[in-house]
Structure formats: C-alpha cells, structure tokens
Nucleic acid binder design. Structure first.
Lengths: 147, 147
DNA sequence: TATTGTTATACTCTATAACTATA
DNA sequence: TATAGTTATAGAGTATAACAATA
C-alpha cells in the first residue's frame, strides 16, 4: 500500500476520534465525582485549572463548544458549587468563571486520576518510550492534520 | 508537577478527543464527496474497506454506535449507491453490508486524502519520526487508557 | 431463548438567533 | 457597531425498546 505511515496514523485516529472512546474514558475518570462532573463539564474544569479564570467566550474554543454551550455547562458546575461567576474587572459585559475551593479539589483529583490511569496503561512500555511519545503526541496536536 | 508525562499526554488527548476536532477533520476529508459522505458515514465506509463485507451488528463497535445507528447510516449510504445489502449466506437473519463499485472508489479517494493530509502535516518532522510516531500511536490505541 | 435488522420513541446536546448590557 | 452572557427554539443524532424472522 502507498503511504503506509499515513494510513497507520489514520487507522489509529479512527479509534481515538470515536465518540465512544471519549465517553468511556471520561466516564471512568469522573466516576463517583457527583452528577455535575461528566464528559461535558470535565473540559470546562480542566481548562480553568490549566489557564485560570476566564470568560465563557474565551474558554469556548478550548472546550469545543460555542459560548452558549459553555454557559449551559458552567451553570451545572455553579449549581454544584464547583465554580463561581465573578464580574470581569476589565470588562463589565463579561463574567469570569472561577474554580471554587471545592472545584480546585475536584480538578486536582480528576487530573491525577487521568494522568495516573494513562501512565498505568503504559507501564509495560520500555523505559523512555512514554516520554518520547508524550512529546510527539503534543507536537502532533500542533502540527497535525487538524485544520 | 508529579507525573509530567501523564499530564502531557492528558493535555494532548483533551485536544484529540474534542468533538470539534473530529468534525473538522472529517469535514475537510469528505468535502465534495456528496451528501451521503460525512463524519457519520465515513467510519462505516472505512470499516468496510478495511475488513470487507460485514453485518451491522458486527460493524457497530468499530463505528462507535449500536446496530440501530449502523442501520441508519447504512441506509443513507445505500440510498446514495455507495453500499448494498446482501443476505448473509451463513445466517438468514443477517444482512451483509457490501461496498458497491462506486463505494470502493469513494473509499479509496477518502483514505488517500486522509493519509496524504496527515503526511503533509508532518512534512516538517525529522526523517523517521513520523514512522516511529505511527507505531507508537497504534500501540497507544491498544495499550492505552481506553478501557 | 437469543440474536438479527429495522423502526418509533424519548432524550440529550448542539448551534442559531434573539435579547439586553456594555465596549 | 461589535461583543459580552444568557435563553428559547429547532434540529440532528443517539440509545432504548419494541417487533418479526431466524438461530
């Protein structure tokens, strides 16, 4: 077959991009964290933990939804006490989404669970391979075939 | 931070698993291929090309939907003339989904587009890196954190 | 009894388009 | 004018549960 490498990556992507792949991973990671934490709200929490307080419009691209989607998900998280809305001091139209103390704790637990689960799954890899793969995977998200 | 590698992979996965990542890639690849070919039907076509004629129940896990989902998507492809349904000679309850000649041609084009686009995006990588990454990515889909 | 393909139903989630307030 | 957050609406897609036919 021509372009074996391209086809091999394409076949792997077919698995990674499946809706069920995302759903199963998130379901496992968020198990027992309360009803507000699931496949939809985890990206919101995770993004806030990575970047600090942000507006809904700012956060939307990172979560892969538009700002109305961020609003819906954020409202669920706010009701559960995991985030709060604060007025943006630099723009009175905007609100900043901020992790509460409870939210910070939840995110820390979730991120640890995910990172540990990933490393556990790669425990049989030769030393150094996971490190090399992590660097390449990150580069792939930047250089790769995504728009 | 503890477990840097796990977190780095987790951050990359956050991008790969986004609904919009899948949608944008598929939209690009299926452009101009007719209304029947899109993000939802491409996995059906691709799976049939990889494995040959299969029943809906067989194919469902590969596409990440249940058999009723395969039926819906297959009907769209059948209407467009890209697949046909044949009775399964070994099981009279089942139908085999088979690519038509037109379907074979469409899949060949789609798979070439995708593989080429992937390789194009990695053209700046050092020689041999894409090959190594392809092998690791495939291993990651097998060993990785996906239940 | 279990499993096949199919269909109808109920549900979830989304983008779009409004709206008001502020830049 | 343009952009902020929010809400209602309409649309798409899903799993579930039925069904008849076959294993």
């Amino acid at each position: 077959m021509d372009n074996d490498v391209g086809h091999e990556i394409a076949n792997a992507l077919a698995i990674l991009l499946r809706r069920t792949t995302r759903a199963q991973l998130h379901q496992r990671i968020t198990q027992g964290m309360g009803e507000a934490v699931d496949e939809l709200t985890y990206p919101i929490l995770s993004a806030l933990a990575r970047t600090g307080p942000r507006s809904a419009a700012d956060l939307a691209p990172d979560a892969g939804v538009d700002r109305s989607g961020v609003t819906r998900r954020a409202t669920r998280l706010e009701t559960a006490g995991l985030i709060r809305r604060e007025p943006d001091p630099t723009d009175r139209r905007a609100h900043l989404l901020v992790l509460t103390e409870q939210g910070e704790a939840a995110v820390a637990e979730l991120r640890t669970r995910l990172a540990d689960h990933i490393m556990d799954s790669l425990s049989s890899w030769p030393p150094g391979e996971a490190e090399a793969f992590a660097r390449q995977l990150r580069r792939f998200t930047v250089d790769g075939p995504f728009t």
